[in-house]
Amino acid sequence: MVITATKNIAESFAGHQSVIHGKREYVRGSVHVNTAESFGAMLERVKEGVFHYMSGKHLDRNLREISFRWNIRIPMEKETKAGRRKITWIPMPVMTMLKSVLNGATGKQKRRTQNNGLAFFYS
């Protein structure tokens, strides 16, 4: 059984594959559900430890920040005790992350408008 939302998302990605847990298939090469489960676990940790509460008003901002942190992780190859090679992900150091964000902001200004909206200016 494929969940409809997952199936719809899968059609957007050319390389999407899935495993069938009902047939006791949990991994096929690099195809597994650990990535989705890991992102979900990260959401829970951030909710408990950083934001404490996520309201609908700021949910988009919270999710964008979490996605940003997820997307800038650094892959590290390790060898397991069994001798197999495994890719693990470590967070990018905070100062490197800040430099990345500031480099993207160069030449851009954000100002409040008369009605408290935001206006962006690019030079």
Rank of each mutant, 00 (worst) to 15 (best):
V2W: 12
T6V: 13
T6P: 03
K7C: 11
K7N: 11
N8L: 15
E11L: 11
E11Q: 12
S12E: 14
Q17S: 15
S18W: 05
S18C: 09
H21S: 12
G22C: 11
G22N: 11
V27T: 05
R28V: 13
G29E: 08
S30I: 07
H32E: 09
V33E: 10
T35Y: 07
T35W: 03
A36N: 12
E37F: 00
S38R: 04
S38Q: 05
G40L: 11
M42W: 00
E44A: 08
R45I: 01
V46E: 03
V46Y: 07
E48W: 07
E48P: 02
G49Q: 11
V50P: 06
F51S: 11
Y53D: 06
Y53M: 01
Y53L: 05
M54I: 15
M54L: 12
S55A: 06
G56A: 11
H58G: 07
R61T: 13
N62Q: 14
R64I: 02
E65W: 00
I66P: 03
S67C: 05
R69C: 01
I72L: 05
R73S: 04
P75H: 00
P75A: 05
P75Q: 02
M76W: 03
M76N: 07
E77P: 03
E77H: 02
E79I: 02
T80I: 03
K81R: 10
A82Y: 01
R84P: 03
R85I: 14
I87M: 13
I87K: 05
I87E: 06
T88Y: 04
I90H: 00
I90R: 03
P91G: 05
P91W: 00
P91T: 01
V94G: 02
V94D: 04
M95H: 15
T96C: 09
K99C: 08
V101P: 05
V101Y: 00
V101I: 10
G104Q: 02
K108G: 07
K110M: 14
K110E: 14
R111F: 06
R112T: 12
R112E: 12
G117Q: 09
A119S: 10
F121C: 04
S123I: 04
